[in-house]
Computed example of a mutant assay.
Amino acid sequence: MVSFWANVIMHFAIAFGVVFGGSMLSGVAAVLTLQSPTEKMLTIAENIKIWAMVASIGGTIDPIRYIESHVAIGHLNPAIKQIVYIVVAFIGAHFGTSLIQMICKGGTQP
Score class of each variant (00 low, 15 high):
G96H: 01
H94I: 10
L42V: 04
I83K: 00
A79V: 04
F95G: 00
P37S: 08
A55K: 00
F16R: 02
V18I: 15
A15P: 01
I48Q: 02
V19Y: 07
G59N: 11
L99C: 03
F16Q: 02
G17V: 05
Y66P: 00
F20A: 09
C104E: 03
I14M: 04
Y66T: 14
E68G: 00
I67K: 03
A45V: 06
M24E: 11
P37E: 08
K40R: 13
A30S: 14
I48A: 04
I91N: 01
D62L: 09
V8S: 04
T43I: 07
N7H: 11
V18A: 02
E46G: 13
G58W: 12
T60R: 00
A93H: 05
G107N: 07
S56T: 05
K40Y: 00
V71W: 02
A15F: 04
G17D: 09
A6W: 05
F20I: 09
M24A: 09
I100R: 09
H94E: 13
G74Y: 07
A29H: 03
H75E: 15
T38V: 05
M10N: 13
I86V: 15
F16H: 02
V19R: 05
A29V: 10
V88H: 02
F90S: 06
A52I: 06
S36W: 05
H70A: 03
N77M: 12
F20K: 00
M10W: 12
Q82D: 06
S69Y: 04
S69A: 12
A29W: 06
Y66A: 11
E68K: 01
I50E: 10
G17N: 05
G58T: 11
N77H: 07
E39G: 13
H75W: 08
N47C: 09
N77D: 13
A55C: 15
L76S: 05
I80V: 15
L34N: 12
G92M: 01
I61P: 00
V31Y: 01
N47E: 15
D62T: 14
P110H: 09
G27T: 08
Y66L: 14
